Amino acid sequence: MTALGQSISRPAGKRDWAGLIGVAGSALTLLITLPKVTEAGGFGLFVNDVLAHGWTLVLLTLAAGTVRTLTLPTFLKTGFAGFFAAFGLAILVGRPTMNRLERMPQLGDVVVMPVVEEILKMLPVLLVAGFALRKKDVRLSVADIMLLGAWSGAGFALHENALFGRGGMDLGAAPPLSLLVPSALPIHTQAGSMLAGGHLLWTTLIALGFGITMLYRKGRFTWLALPVTAAVALGEHAICNAYSDASVRTPAKVAHVLLLGGWASLLLLVAGGIYIYLEWRLISRKRLPAARIPQWILPSAAERARRGQLLGFWQVGVHAFKKTGATA
């Protein structure tokens, strides 16, 4: 995953050839391993699941287009890191952990594995953000961090769903959320019902909280963003795992009510969108002349550098979102 960190430190005008080669190599590896990975559910189900997660990734990437400072290859590499590295580490850590907890499988399924998986899915995000936070003049946006989480979570989810023969796309399962996240499916069991947002939604939420807390540390209440979003994502993840076992009915139902049956994550993402809007208001000033391809679809290197410099000044040079009248 070293190439992920190198992407953020590359000069703005230099093409990321190493990143493109890395993406091509990962795609080739995926094609080679696909027959084995999709044995449980078949290739058709995998394609359907790719469409479901891809739909959300495209919508999020376009919606955040006015504040993105990272390139598409960086997001693709993060997705492959979630698919191969994060999931592989989850298997490597999860199997011996569950073996140790064989007498207490609920503890492993409901508490340990959600924590392990969410941490591992955030590793590619932390790697890229770590390089960015070392700089003062050029910084990432909250939307960048959020999108990295979305791509990593989607990669992880695709591998897990393919391996266990599940997943798919349903635009009418839980409207209006399913129109944006068709991979989010309701779970109905004897223990209760829960809207399973899935790895994409949970990691996106944690990454959003991490971005707000780390990039805008000078804000009065921004330190709360990460613990709140992590608690909601981990809670929903744990409940979804718990609903596979009716013996944990009471705690699951209590948490179910507190987390609004799985809708709390969506509400927090909408609230977090305020930060993305404020960042857009900031960097919408002093825009470069329009390019042949709209900058919100495919921002040029110069435009991305301009955004990063303004964000660096705003995040480090002044109080978070406090208008001082100063100029970058």
Rank of each mutant, 00 (worst) to 15 (best):
A242E: 06
A24R: 07
G262E: 01
L258G: 11
L123D: 00
R249P: 04
E236T: 09
P299F: 04
W223Y: 07
I206Q: 01
I91C: 11
M122T: 08
L195V: 08
W55T: 11
V37G: 01
L4Q: 02
Q309F: 03
W151I: 01
G13Q: 12
L70G: 02
G65P: 14
L127I: 08
K323W: 03
D109F: 09
V47G: 15
V37K: 06
P11G: 12
K77E: 13
G209H: 00
W296I: 04
G317F: 06
F75W: 12
G272A: 02
R15V: 06
L205I: 06
M122R: 04
A162N: 11
A191V: 06
L288T: 11
R281Q: 14
F210Y: 14
V23Q: 02
A174G: 07
S26L: 14
V58A: 15
F84C: 02
L224E: 11
W296G: 01
P35G: 10
P294W: 08
E118H: 11
S9P: 07
E160S: 07
A52R: 02
P105F: 05
T2L: 15
V23D: 01
G172I: 01
E279A: 09
A207K: 00
A81N: 03
L282D: 06
G54N: 07
L59R: 05
T324H: 06
V254R: 14
A173D: 05
L179K: 03
M1P: 09
D245Q: 13
G211C: 11
S300Q: 04
A302G: 14
H319W: 08
P175G: 03
A320E: 06
I293S: 14
A157K: 00
T33H: 10
G211N: 05
T203R: 01
L268A: 02
V116S: 13
L76Y: 02
A231W: 09
L57E: 01
K286F: 10
L269E: 01
V67Q: 01
S193K: 08
S26R: 03
T78F: 05
M214Y: 03
V232E: 08
L28N: 04
V181S: 02
A291Q: 13
A291M: 14
E236A: 10
L258I: 13
E160P: 01
L180K: 03
G42K: 10
F156I: 04
K36T: 13
G42A: 09
L101S: 05
V318Y: 02
T29D: 11
